[in-house]
Design a binder for these strands. Structure first.
Lengths: 227, 227
DNA sequence: TGTACATCAGTGAACGCGCGTTCACTGATGTAC
DNA sequence: TGTACATCAGTGAACGCGCGTTCACTGATGTAC
């Protein structure tokens, strides 16, 4: 390996380490992450972090992209091993929830309230849409296999807007599939977020996984999945 | 009016004014609300605020209770004027969404990511559960009127937990109604939050109300509402 | 009616802290000739 | 192989800022006798 490559590798490793420490700090500081605290934990001067990230916002952006990718990855891998559409659906949903429970503050970073004064740059969209595309693909595949319940066509102006999206970016999906995928996605993420943010306290304490699966199946039915 | 009462009234008015300014500040600062900034806006010394709230957290708590009450109030009033269960359901849902759109930062305060380092005290629960009780009451009423679709009984450990809750606090509701109400509530709040937090950008822009109603009806079906 | 006292909203200075970012710098490492 | 130079990670001090909370205080208003 050339010296230049070695330097590049060390740089990449340091970048990862900064992100790893920053992720830990999300737990205590939430989204108002402190660059100085991260540097302190790494035993380096706060100014040194600027060798790796041009600003606090850029570090935040990196964390956000990582989080979207991680949850998307987890869902994709879980679904990949399954046979039927329903199995894939359930596997993807549980994978997302498992990841959220293991990384609650990263989940809050991407699906919680927006960080005041922070505007997500374009770079985040690709990673952000991965999990939605996975859900859409599962539904579309089931649709082609004739496993999707017959439903009345969508009506209303929002249906036209969704049809336009389908035409421009997702020609293999119908407006109906997109609407139902988004709706199911909102339901699933809502269920995960509310469980995570404590709204189930004092009601369902033990079998939250079971209750989540109940809701996950409901979301599947909403999306037309039979079985 | 006695002088003591006058003093009490002025005190109450000042308290309200502090909360009003603090609510405006949620927009810029999110949950890391600055007491000093609020005092500055009111033209008073920051220490004066301590005559009204013992700490920043206590002010936050007051804002949270107000927000829960406001959205609960809006939903209750909207539902009160309707005839059928479905009409009440839609009216309550739209009222919650309308309130959220009008007060996005207060919505984020109660249904967004938890504020780091802040633990909600007991006083908030009554206000927090109002809207869920309303939804549960609508479903229960429809159930008594025979307007709820027949469904298989709940199975699983979470069903037992919910049955225990029903037995202890809500004897007129079945575990099934509670499960479905919670699930529908998560779905509705998820839809509102994700719309508010920008997840619909570049897909549905115009007719978000229509798309929300589509999801609201789906939530109603999930809860067993026919029609 | 007049006076001494209590109440209490609000002041302003201070404590001790943390923050993001900049800047001139050091010193190790690698590169070119 | 040896030397001059370039690169670049990391330092430490500084700038200018904001924060929550405390404390001794002022001064207006109301109360008791």
């Amino acid at each position: 390996m050339s010296a230049a490559n070695l330097r590049a590798r060390l740089r990449a490793e340091m970048t990862e380490e900064i992100k790893a420490v920053a992720k830990r700090h999300l737990a205590t500081d939430g989204a108002n992450l402190s660059l100085r605290a991260v540097a302190r934990d790494l035993g380096m001067a706060s100014s040194a972090v600027y060798r790796y990230f041009a600003s606090r916002d850029e570090l935040l952006t990196a964390l956000i992209i990582d989080a979207y990718d991680a949850v998307g990855d987890a869902a994709e891998r879980a679904a990949a091993g399954r046979e039927t559409a329903l199995e894939k659906w359930l596997a993807a949903g549980h994978a997302a929830r498992d990841w959220a429970i293991a990384n609650p503050h990263e989940w809050a970073l991407i699906y919680g309230s927006p960080v005041p004064g922070y505007a997500a740059p374009r770079d985040t969209v690709d990673s952000a849409t991965r999990i939605m595309l996975l859900l859409g693909a599962i539904i579309a595949e089931a649709d082609r296999a004739g496993e999707i319940a017959e439903r009345a066509p969508l009506t209303g102006r929002f249906a036209e807007e969704l049809a336009a999206v389908a035409g421009a970016y997702l020609p293999h999906l119908t407006a109906r599939v997109i609407a139902d995928t988004i709706a199911a996605f909102f339901q699933i993420c809502g269920a995960i977020s509310f469980e995570l943010f404590g709204q189930l306290n004092n009601t369902v304490e033990d079998d939250r996984r079971g209750f989540f699966e109940y809701q996950l199946r409901a979301a599947g039915r909403l999306a037309g999945l039979t079985g």
